[in-house]
Every structure is written in C-alpha cells, then in structure tokens.
Amino acid sequence: MFPEDIRIPLEGWVNDGLDWLVVGYGDYFDAINRFILSFLIQIEWALRTLPWWVITVLIAGLAFHATRNWKLPATVVVGLVLIGTLGLWDLAMQTMALMLLAVIISILIGVPTGVLMANSDTLRKIMRPMLDAMQTLPPFVYLVPAVMLFGLGKVPAIVATVIYAVPPLVRLTDLGIRLVDAEVMEASRAFGTGKFKQLMKVQLPLAMPNIMAGINQCTMMALGMVVIASMIGARGLGEHVLVGIQRLDVGKGLAGGIGIVVLAVIFDRITQAYGARQMQHSGKD
C-alpha cells in the first residue's frame, strides 16, 4: 500500500480550476461558442439546403480532381446514394458539417504547431507528452468539462473532436518538415531565400505528402468521434447510432454505422488521393 499521507490533491485543484473558469470566464467561452457556431450554422445551412444531387456532384468532382480517374467519383456517387436511400441524408449532412469544421480547425491549429515543433527541439519535448495525453485520455474525461464550458451540443463536440483528432496532424507535419533534405535547405539558402519564403516554398511543399497523411488521419479520427460526440447532444449520424444502441434497435444502429463508414471511406479515399498526387509531384520535381 502506498502511504496515505503522500497525496497530491489533484481532484480538488482540477474541480476548483474548472469552477473558476465556468463562473469567472463563462462569458468568454460563450463568445467562442457563438463564434464557432456561426461558422457551423453556415456550413450546415449550405449542406442541408442544397439539393442532394448538387452535393453529390460537388463531392464527386472533388474526387475526380484528386484522382483524375472515374473510379473514385463513381464510388462517391454510389456511397452518397446509399446514404440517401437509408434515409440518413439530413443526418449525414449534419455529421459532415461537424467533421468539416473540426478538420478545418484542426488544420489551422495542427499545421502551425507542427511547423513550430519541427523548428524547436525544446517545444517538441514539451509537446510530445501533451500529444500522447490528448490521444489516450478517455474522451469522456474532457467531454464533460467541455459541456460545462461551452454548453451542450455541437460546439463542445467540435472542441472534443479537435482535441482527439489534431495530434496525428501535428506529429506528421513535424515529421514531414524534419524529413526535408538538409541539402535542399542549404541550396535554397544559397539562393538567398528568406526564412518565411523557405518555409512556404520549400519546406511545406516537400512535407505535403506527410501533411496530407496527417489530414487523412485527422478526418478519420473526427468521424470516429461522431458517436461519442452524440453523447453530449451533437445531432447527426452519431445520435442515430446512439438511439439504436440504447433502444436495442440493432438495425437502426447498424444503418447509422453504415452511414458513418460510407462518409469515412469517401473522405479517406479523397484525402489519400490528394496525398498520393503530392507524392508524385515531389517525385517528379
């Protein structure tokens, strides 16, 4: 037995800290909440009011742009029509909006953090255990505080999704930039390229295959969070699955699950295809 007098009162600290945030800074979190929500409502509005075939054509077009091949667009059309025929269209669009915004925020946070980490070994040493924690903490541990701070619904779901999905993107950006050849960097320096220009024109393009792999991972993890996010009231496919499970309606749960899988397959293939094209580009250069 560990001696009882040696205890860190972590529980008390965390609870007091959270109370302090909720009571003292609730309004700031409300402002963040409204800010994120305003974007989400617009994305959702677009996805839910456009006719289904417009969205299908748009996503199929994106798939064609990524692969220059008709196979993937065909898969996209079949997948989206399947979602529609299962009666899940509206739910799938809500989930897609949530996922898209979570991925956009993850990119805005993850890529710059990855770049900074690649340039500073100290920062890397600090960040790595944090990233480990973000990936392994059971989501409910930060899901419920997210509700306390942001209220119930989609915004805390996005916050929790970003926490869960951003680590692979940070890691892969860091890795990609560190893998850029030292000789290439030296050559660009010899031409008198400034640091920022070096980053934008040399490092990021060369690291792009890794960054795309990170975005792909990020997208997949965001979709994986959908069911957990529905436990704090985020509507969409996740809620459909949750209803199915909690009412022992296995069919309903499976239908919702299939919807999530179809979305995952579509976005996985599209982001992978972009990654592969980046790889070819860098190969050619």
Binding site: V144, V147, L152, S230, M231, I232, G233, A234, E239
Partner: peptide, 9 residues
C-alpha cells in the same frame, strides 16, 4: 427537444 446523449451531460 434537446437530448443530451448521456446522464453526465
């Protein structure tokens, strides 16, 4: 009709 998804929420 907002359903919070879990008792904890």
């Amino acid at each position: 009709n907002f359903k919070p998804g879990s008792g904890a929420a």
